[in-house]
């Protein structure tokens, strides 16, 4: 059974200058243990899609099912790495990572031990006492990653988590993520605007059309061997082939959807 199923999901925002349909009639399955990447032009509705799967936004039409059960309210099986900084600025890195455990009633001492353990795993051993404003952008992303992963969610939603990082740190963290994912095969929905990153990480790449009324226009399986090293994968001939094919279908599909939209008025 798919970990997450979206059936005919649409999201409309009521605005002052008329309603805006961000995503329209989205059908999407994320298999158990599958790493799905979503690419699409800026503003097409990728974050909106994640919000719907997280249960933070209610679809105006359609249905989200998590492990076969229709989603009402928050998605308790999911961990969400937000596009923007979401750490609590008044809590130290350690307290930020421990927060979710405390919310779930884990004893404080044990929560802090686990938090330190995870800070170590994302390469931040010894930075636990620092407050977010004392951390670099990349360090904050790592804390956020630890904050989400310490809860061991079955579903991982990630919204451009590495886009603010420099190339080196970025491929380092991408490899770390793949390593962590390989260990216990969570279902991952990974949003990025970087096609190369999507191909290097995913089992499948979904291309969304431009908004309004964005929807997946292509779904490409990525058959690069695992375990992968993202830097090496990028240099393999197969990667270049996939990249070309994806660009092709991206262009074709976007043109198709534009024509369809023009015809519909």
């Amino acid at each position: 059974m798919a970990a997450v199923e979206l059936r005919g999901v649409s999201v409309r925002f009521a605005g002052t200058s008329g309603a805006y349909t961000a995503i329209e009639h989205v059908d999407l399955d994320i298999g158990a243990g599958e790493f799905v990447c979503v690419v699409g032009p800026t503003g097409c509705g990728k974050s909106t899609l994640l919000n719907v799967v997280a249960g933070l936004a209610k679809p105006t039409a359609g249905e989200v099912r998590v492990a076969g059960v229709p989603l009402t309210g928050l998605n308790r099986a999911a961990g969400y790495l937000f596009q923007t900084d979401a750490l609590m600025p008044w809590a130290s890195a350690r307290d930020n990572v421990a927060a979710g455990l405390l919310f779930r009633g884990v004893a404080r001492a044990q929560a802090l031990t686990q938090a330190d353990d995870w800070l170590g795993r994302v390469g931040l051993r010894g930075a636990g006492d620092r407050y977010p404003h004392q951390l670099s952008g990349g360090m904050k992303k790592r804390v956020a990653l630890a904050q989400t992963l310490v809860l061991d969610p079955k579903i991982l939603l990630m919204d451009e988590p590495f886009s603010a990082l420099d190339v080196q740190t970025r491929s380092l963290m991408e490899n770390e993520l793949l390593g962590l994912w390989a260990a216990d095969r969570k279902s991952v929905l990974f949003v990025t605007h970087d096609l190369d990153e999507a191909i290097a990480l995913g089992d499948r790449v979904i291309v969304m059309s431009a908004g309004p009324g964005s929807r997946p226009v292509a779904s490409h399986p990525i058959d690069l061997p695992r375990p992968r090293d993202v830097a090496e994968a990028r240099m393999s001939p197969r990667f270049v082939e996939l990249q070309r094919a994806l660009w092709q279908s991206l262009r074709v599909e976007v043109q198709k959807s534009q024509r369809a939209m023009a015809a519909a008025g």
């Binding site: 750490l87 609590m88 927060a99 405390l102 919310f103 779930r104 809860l151």
Partner: peptide, 26 residues
């Protein structure tokens, strides 16, 4: 910041915990 609130909710904060860990310190 609504993102901090959403994040805390995703991490499992109840209404009371939101008050104590997010709204109050803010």
């Amino acid at each position: 910041n609504p993102v901090i609130v959403d994040n805390a909710r995703m991490l499992g904060a109840s209404r009371r915990q939101l008050l104590r860990y997010v709204y109050w310190p803010s």
